[in-house]
């Protein structure tokens, strides 16, 4: 009798359709979480920048959200919003807030005061100053936050398999239930690969959006 191999490629090739479906689901869950999280974070960051006294409570609250164990959070949400995408997203979004808000605020605060003063001195209004000067200059720091949030979220999405979502987490959960190594390894590997790939894409996006930070080797 031959022992079953640890990893069965044939199973993988038989389920390519399902794998693709779960990968897409994973990306969609991540994308929605990041998009919604970014919008909420930007709003809260703007409030915090405009009214500095609100900033400590904002970071405190989002910090508390961040520390709640994800399992507990989803377990808590199920009685309220059920085994739905909404439950998954509420959890995922709340984990992005702290990182995104902190990076948006740090990015804006890190803009050289001389640049701000020069802009005001030339007649920029506060709205244009923010959109045309502060935001672009904060972009590298903001995108660094987005990268961390993206990688964290991709990992967390697998947990939402417990509430019927989960993207590639589906394989991990099912593999555990059936003592089937191939699925556990596949789910884990896919999650890691997705995280690395998304991070790389974001690095490229940053390069494209911030050409002025590139080192040019042109003769000076």
């Amino acid at each position: 009798m031959i022992a079953a191999p640890f990893f069965r490629w044939d199973w993988v090739f038989d389920h390519l359709g399902l794998i693709w479906e779960k990968v897409s689901e994973h990306l969609v869950l991540t994308g929605i979480a990041l998009g919604v999280g970014f919008v909420i974070s930007m709003a809260l960051a703007l409030i915090g920048l405009r009214f500095p006294r609100t900033y400590p409570p904002i970071t405190w609250l989002t910090g508390v959200l961040y520390t709640i164990p994800s399992l507990a959070l989803f377990a808590f949400l199920v009685p309220i919003t059920g085994f739905t995408v909404l439950s998954a997203e509420i959890g995922l979004v709340s984990y992005t807030l702290l990182i995104l808000i902190r990076n948006i605020v740090a990015g804006i605060q890190g803009v050289d005061p001389a640049v701000r003063e020069a802009a005001l001195g030339m007649g920029y209004g506060s709205r244009r100053l923010f959109l045309e000067i502060e935001l672009p200059l904060a972009l590298p720091v903001i995108l660094a936050g987005v990268r961390i949030a993206a990688v964290t979220t991709i990992g967390l999405v697998t947990i939402t398999a417990l509430i019927g979502q989960g993207g590639v987490g589906f394989f991990i959960l099912q593999g555990l239930n059936r003592f089937f190594n191939t699925e556990i390894v596949l789910g884990t590997a896919l999650s890691v690969i997705l995280a690395v790939a998304v991070d790389l894409v974001l690095v490229l996006v940053e390069r494209l959006l911030t050409p002025w930070t590139a080192k040019r080797t042109a003769a000076s």
């Binding site: 050289d112 640049v115 020069a118 005001l120 007649g123 200059l137 911030t210």
Partner: peptide
Amino acid sequence: PAHELRRRVGYVIQQIGLFPHR
């Protein structure tokens, strides 16, 4: 209005404050 005044008055500071992204 302040922004109109400032567009009529050139302003140069020690740190220059050129916009790094432009």
